[in-house]
């Protein structure tokens, strides 16, 4: 059962990776990276049960969830405002501009 779970998780990671490689727009890649982050957290937890030390691995998985959230917020801010420095008064979307 655990083997099946791991294989399904690895398969969905491969699919998310495929979307990140092919993805025509930036938003496809953002979504793929976010889904990949979730899948990695799940894989680490499943590996914890496979090894038999789930209590340590769940801690790592929680930390990945928190850190991945920071990265997602930064990615969305850059894709919305163009950089990380400004507070959001000027709206200029880099994904829509051909070149900066």
């Amino acid at each position: 059962m655990l083997t099946l779970t791991l294989l399904v998780l690895l398969g969905s990671m491969a699919l998310a990776l495929l979307r990140a490689v092919k993805g025509p727009t930036v938003y496809d890649r953002i979504l793929a990276a976010n889904a990949f982050s979730t899948k990695t957290v799940l894989l680490i937890t499943a590996l914890g049960f496979l090894v038999g030390e789930a209590e340590y691995y769940v801690d790592i998985a929680l930390m990945y969830t928190l850190v991945g959230f920071i990265a997602t917020v930064a990615v969305l801010k850059v894709s919305e405002f163009g950089n990380l420095g400004q507070s959001g008064a000027v709206r200029s979307t880099p994904a829509e501009r051909p070149n900066k």
Binding site: V21, R29, A32, A33, T40, I44, L47, A71, S79
Partner: peptide
């Protein structure tokens, strides 16, 4: 596209971390 490259790097480091855990 450098934005896409950053997304690939993010996936890369997630994968590297999963390898370390494995």
């Amino acid at each position: 596209d450098l934005f896409a490259v950053v997304m690939m790097f993010s996936i890369y480091s997630l994968l590297a971390a999963a390898v370390f855990v494995a």
